[in-house]
Design a protein around this nucleic acid. Structure first.
Lengths: 197, 197
DNA sequence: TCTATTACTAGACATGATGTTGATTTTCTT
DNA sequence: AAGAAAATCAACATCATGTCTAGTAATAGA
C-alpha cells in the first residue's frame, strides 16, 4: 500500500514544498511562477513537471496529503473518551499541525487557500463538533450560526497558535478548543431556550 | 472630494466586478485570466487595462473600496450605545455586506482572498471586540486565543449568512454577533478566573 | 560491488496570455 | 451641438508555459 518513495523524490518534493511555503509568505499563489519556485530551490524546471502539472495542482496535492494524515489520525485516535475533557484526536490534530507548521502557516495565512480552510472546517465539523457538543434541536437556525461561529473560531485558534511561538502544548490547545466550543455553544443554547419561553 | 464617475466607467467596472464575482465562484483567482474575464462580460481587453493593471490589482481595488465603505460606517454610526445590546455600526456592517453580497460571497468563499478576510477581522477586532467586550487582564495568553476564536467566529457567522437565504435581518445578525461574542468571552474569562484561583 | 532502474538535468520548441501602443470610433457631459 | 473622455481594434514584443528528447547522475536491490 504505502510504497516507499525514492530518496531523490522525497528530497525534491520536500525542497519544492519548503520553497513554496516560503514564497507564500511573501506573495499570492497567483504571482508565484513555476520558474520562480524552481529557481528559488535550485531545481530544474523539467523536474517540477515530473511531479506536478502546475503550482495549483502542487498545492492540491500537498493539501490532500495533509488531509489524509488528519483523516488517518481519526482512525487511530478515539474521538470521545467519556472520562476526559478532550479527545486524543484533537490533540493529535494539533501535533500534525505542528509537524507541518511551515506549510500550514502558509496555507492558513494571508496568502493561503480558503479551500483548504474549508476542508479543515469540514473535518472539524464532522469529527469534533457533533460528537463533542450535544445540540438541542430547538432554535435550529440560530444554532447553525453558533456552530459556524465555533467552526471558524477553531480555525482562528489554530492560526493564532501557528503564528505564535507554539509554546502551548498540543494537549493544552486541545483543552482550550474543548472549553471554547462547549462554553460558546451550551451557553448559547441555554440562553436561546430561555428567550423562546 | 467624491468626484462623480462617468456613467461608462461605472458601467464597465460594474460589469467587470460582476464577472469576476461569478468566475470566482467557479475557480481560483489564479486560474482566471484577463482575457477570460473580458470575454465573459464582452468588454475589450484594452479597456480592462485602462482601469486595472491585472486581476489581482483589480481585486485589491475592490477590496479597498469595501473596506473604505466599512470604515466610513464607523464614522457615522455609534459604536457603543450604553442602552442597547448591539451597536448600530455592526448592523450597518451587515447591511453593507448585503448590498455587496455577490462580491463578498466570492471574497469569503472557497476561492476567496484570505487577505481580505484578515482585513475584515482586523476591523472587527479594533472596532467591535475591544469596545464590546470587557476583557480582564488575567490569563492574557489564553484570552488572546479566545479573542482570536471570536474574531474568526464572526467571519464564519458572516459566511454562513451570505451563503444562506439572507432571511435574517442585519439587525438580528448584529444581535447574534453580540450574543456570541459576549457569551464566549465572558464565560471563558469567568471560568479561567475560577481555574487559576 | 555491480547493474538495471529510475530520477534529475539540459536545451530546444511552439504556444498563448500578457502588457503596451497608436489610431479610430463611440458615448458622455455640459 | 461640440469638446472631452472612454471604449474599441489591431498589432507588437515578451515571457512563462508545457512538452519533448537526449544525456547524466543517483538509487535500490542482488
Amino acid at each position: 500500500m504505502t510504497k516507499t518513495l525514492d530518496r531523490r523524490v522525497r528530497k525534491t518534493r520536500a525542497q519544492l514544498r519548503t520553497g513554496l511555503a516560503k514564497l507564500m509568505q511573501e506573495k499570492s499563489v497567483r504571482e508565484i511562477t513555476v520558474k520562480e519556485l524552481v529557481d528559488a530551490v535550485d531545481i530544474n524546471r523539467s523536474t517540477f513537471y515530473l511531479h506536478y502539472s502546475d503550482i495549483y495542482q502542487m498545492l492540491d496535492s500537498i493539501e490532500a496529503e495533509l488531509e489524509a494524515e488528519i483523516m488517518e489520525a481519526i482512525q487511530t485516535h478515539p474521538l470521545n473518551p467519556v472520562d476526559k475533557d478532550t479527545s486524543p484526536f484533537v490533540e493529535q490534530f494539533f501535533i500534525i499541525l505542528e509537524e507541518n507548521q511551515d506549510i500550514c502557516r502558509a496555507l492558513l495565512g494571508p496568502h493561503g487557500d480558503m479551500t483548504f480552510v474549508a476542508n479543515i472546517e469540514k473535518i472539524i465539523a464532522e469529527n469534533v463538533m457533533n460528537k463533542d457538543v450535544s445540540l438541542s434541536n430547538k432554535n435550529v437556525l440560530d444554532i447553525a450560526y453558533a456552530s459556524a461561529f465555533c467552526l471558524s473560531g477553531c480555525v482562528g485558534l489554530i492560526k493564532t497558535w501557528l503564528n505564535g511561538t507554539l509554546k502551548e502544548s498540543p494537549h493544552h490547545m486541545a483543552e482550550l478548543t474543548h472549553t471554547l466550543i462547549t462554553h460558546t455553544t451550551r451557553e448559547f443554547v441555554v440562553r436561546a431556550a430561555i428567550i423562546t419561553q
